[in-house]
Amino acid sequence: MLPQYALSQLLEALFAVVVAPLALGWVNQCRAWLQNRRGPGVTQPYRVIAKLFRKEVVLAHQASFLFRAVPYVVFGCMVLATGIVPMLATALPFAPAADVIALVGLLALARIFMALAAMDTGTAFGSLGARREMLVAALAEPALLMVFFMPSLIARSTSLTTIVETLAHQRVAVHPSLAFAAVAFVMVMLAENARIPVDNPGTHLELTMIHEATILEYSGRHLALIEWAHALKLLVYATIGIALFLPWGIAEAGHWAGLPTAVLALVAKLLVGGAALAVTETVSAKLRIFRAPEFLATAFLMAVLGMLTHLLLEGTA
């Protein structure tokens, strides 16, 4: 029993690590199509990562051991996060080690290391990026937690597998609060993955950078790991969204037969979700940096309101 589960855990993490750049490539390709460009093809992120791995690392004189360790730590956190989020099956032996709060903590750990690394080289843009990244985090992270708390209240559990099992396999029940959660989650996801209304993943214009500014000094294998971790983060968020709001089709614990369906369902959902992300990014304009806190505060308050709605409409009394 146990080795079987461990295998499924390992397979799922590997699946995520392998698929993540593809998902990013799909979003980029969709954006290119929407902008009437041909686009680089969905496999471009793999080529970028492979190229970066082969390149030499150029370190700033000022960089300390922290700077060199951070890419590995960030990558490790992201891989671990994929181990907690149920993507294909809810049978995850690692899941009891960390619930949704710990998942948010892991993502925060990665981000704080990223911000510290950005400050480590002592450049103007590095510290600017660190400050902005932490600002976005300071508002997005509570919003994300509040989003998680709504399904937690519904499922009476903060364990992600329990939540998904409750939501996916229950009788038909409508949870109005999840509508609020979904809106808030989309806003947080855009902010946390440096997507357009808050940040622009394609920009190298100095004054508008947030995430890009924190990784300016990275090169070679370090940059490859960070880019890969970034793709993983997008995948983690996408699968969290799928698990919370569109959980149907996921394989139950011990049901190996459900796995092919689960894979197909996941791929279909990711394709649609990626396209939707690309559309969102294409139709919206980047916000001024000080509109971003307003955007995130809106997400945060939406989530608070959702929780309130839950207590009032779906209360136990």
Binding site: V174, P176, A179, L301, L313, E314
Partner: peptide, 17 residues
């Protein structure tokens, strides 16, 4: 009733939006 609740929540959502 669940449907009405859902509609109500969505109405509240649009009001906030």
């Amino acid at each position: 009733n669940q449907l009405v609740d859902l509609i109500a929540a969505l109405l509240l959502l649009t009001s906030f939006a």
